[in-house]
Amino acid sequence: MSVKTMDETAAGTTVYVYEAPVRVWHWISALCIVVLAVTGYFIANPLPSVSGEASEHFLMGYIRFMHFSAAYIFAIGFVARIYWAMVGNKNARQLFMLPPIFSKDWWAGMLQEVRWYLFLEKEPRKYVGHNPLALLFMFVAITLGGLFMIATGFALYGEGAQGWSHALFSSWVIPLFGQSQDVHTWHHMVAWGIVWFIMLHVYAAIREDIMSPQTMVSAIISGYRSFRK
């Protein structure tokens, strides 16, 4: 995350940043989040009623099933990703590390990034992994946000499903918030927060791919990041 030695980020060099499990996890999670956001919206605001006998339909049931399946995949992926953070390369660890808020260097890098986005800098700094601003956003939205959604989500799921999710999550999350409706509201609110993050994330990745001297989109597909200029 600190500025790398020139040889590693020099123009024309290519570095292997994202290992295969990280890339696979990224795209699976991305798909899960899209499914979760869409189905989640329709759980809170259901589609217009279907006609006929109740026994002929299972629309809400299927929407909820998709939500729960995607949630399971996201949660299992999250756990696997934490495992990979421990055994993978140092770029795999970045996501789960509290940003170094006591490091002057990090704050200087952060300021630089903010200035870059405000068109006050001609060139952004080069980073092998995430830049300081991205690191903060990733940590808050994905690590903290993801954990929050998993905990509140399984708490709500456990209310009906009982079993392990009730014992592990519902039993303490619901009393912590006061009541189930509050957990619903917060689950909903943080979901929107993740939607905002994704809008910014996708925009920033494409913009940096075009405007910064390093590749972004191809890096999360092939794993290699190239530096130009």
């Binding site: 919206y41 809170a44 605001n45 409706q181 619903h184 509201t185 909903h188 609110m189 979901a191 929107w192 927060g193 939607v195 905002w196 809008m199």
Partner: peptide
């Protein structure tokens, strides 16, 4: 169904706040 969030004014709820910010 989606209940109010008092912090954002009487008529707000998670969807309205979320959608507006989005």
């Amino acid at each position: 169904r989606v209940t109010g969030i008092n912090q954002f004014g009487i008529e707000a709820n998670a969807d309205k706040v979320g959608g507006t910010v989005a």
